[in-house]
Write a protein that binds this DNA or RNA. Sequence first.
DNA 1: CTGAAAGCGCTTACAG
DNA 2: CTGAAAGCGCTTACAG
Lengths: 325, 325
Amino acid sequence: MANIKEIARMAGVSVTTVSRVLNRHPYVSEDKRAAVLEAVRKLDYVQNLNAVHLIKGKTSMIAVVLPYVDNPYLSSPVEGILSEANQCGYRVVLCQTNYRPEEELNVLEMLRMKQVDGVIITSRTNDWDVIKPYLAYGPIVVCEDAGDEPLSCAYIDHYRSFETGLRYLTAQGHRHVACCMGRRGSNTSLVREHAVREALAAVQEPLRPEWMFYDALSMEAGVEVAHRLAGMNPRPTAVLAGTHQTAAGLVAEARKLGLRVPDDLAVIGFDNHMLGQLLDITAVEQSNKDVGRAAFQMLHRYIAEDRYEAEKQELPVRLVERSTV
Amino acid sequence: MANIKEIARMAGVSVTTVSRVLNRHPYVSEDKRAAVLEAVRKLDYVQNLNAVHLIKGKTSMIAVVLPYVDNPYLSSPVEGILSEANQCGYRVVLCQTNYRPEEELNVLEMLRMKQVDGVIITSRTNDWDVIKPYLAYGPIVVCEDAGDEPLSCAYIDHYRSFETGLRYLTAQGHRHVACCMGRRGSNTSLVREHAVREALAAVQEPLRPEWMFYDALSMEAGVEVAHRLAGMNPRPTAVLAGTHQTAAGLVAEARKLGLRVPDDLAVIGFDNHMLGQLLDITAVEQSNKDVGRAAFQMLHRYIAEDRYEAEKQELPVRLVERSTV
DNA sequence: CTGAAAGCGCTTACAG
DNA sequence: CTGAAAGCGCTTACAG
């Protein structure tokens, strides 16, 4: 493959001049520019981006940490990130971690090794203290409430979200409510449990551990939860399903098992996926895609301005009444 | 950030030696290795990957061309690609094209500019003739039958797939069949139309253009198709929905509109998504995830062996009987 | 407007 | 086992 030197020789100019026309610098005479362009054409030349990246210290790429691609709930921020990145001329390296801490670190190492200009963590398993040091190597944005940590974040307030769902249920008279959560002990789960506990306390009900289902953010999990609920006695009268996928699996399977929704079992889903509309599932609407979009915008600004500043951006949540409560 | 020279100075060795220990070359005395490692630790050093990529001429990254991330049917190959790539130590740059030809070319340019070692095209809009020249810059694998083109491919035979579905329907006595397709005029659509036409001809039925629905590979599209079918007279007795998403939208919405499935309308879905199981949709099962997996394996081999050879790998298809026919 | 030269940070024959 | 040196392919002050 031709390099800049060959172009320079063929065009009868210096490599400096070649570089100038390649980078659209002003101050190049028309005839030299033409000569360079002609040589570029003849030799089918393009820049070697690795050399450009090396010398510029930037790559116009970011990395995205994602636990699993095949879970629509988890991967929805990626849609927002990708569409924003596209517009800004950024490429995104999608890194699936399967929630393995070392994998997360490997991605952060990419930042340290200058392979990417920034990182968005959609969901993490490492402690803040192991993530924070990497801020020294470049900007990082997380898609969860980072509290008082000096990390920028775009997020949905899971406390508010679950509180909204639960208060709606209690207002309808439900007292025995089950919940579908993500990983047991995850930051999000802790926050959600807190919301559930308090909203139940407001109606003098305790949180019953046996009604909390973990690792239940997929359609498959919804199906399984339906079976477990069907066999319970006493049985909760309502479920706060963690995602639309869970809710869909739950509603469809519960009906197959002979439970009437909402009469025997009320169900509330989350997010704003088409699936919820299709099955007419009452839901707390919140857009993870918008979370991703906001996260990229922040990250992009940090890269462009070359300075980082911990900010927080909370995205809205609202209850949409449909037919499953 | 420290560079290799500083490490060399601090450790009292040459940069050659530093490079050796960094790259785990043999023939480095224990004490020098220790000295280097110590300096690396003290200076918090890591390699600048851009320099490594430049000099090696490889990046351990591949690019994936994808029309839309938010369409589960289209994005399913990515799951397979990502999981395989992870195991081989490759990173994947996910490039959403929205079916814009220039965007596709931009991705191929990444190959030319050495930003990635190879490209997988899950779905394309450019002609073979514009894609093929890029083979000069690195390996490319496509996720569709490339026919006699000198391009490697991993794919599902859409002719066989649609034929399987349609023959099942005609065997059950259906004569009036509608179909949900992708983009009108796309390669896949042409093949599918061909299969439909022949399978119908086998029972002396013509293909009716008004029963062919295009851009119908999403749940939303399934919902819309349900409405259009509900208003038709005469109405087809069966539909070959292009994907599980389409089938799900179609089945759920048709029922809302008072159509009985399968009595008034039989539906066959495709792929092997959980959704199909959940709604108990009869389907032609085929795994796009496996397509992605196979595509990466081929690409990886070409990169590792540094030679390209056009191969074809067809993935299996089988009909799964459920309740919607 | 233009070019010689230094430099980005690494790897790798080559010679010892 | 080790190092000086060339080279990967570019950009960018600097001086003219």
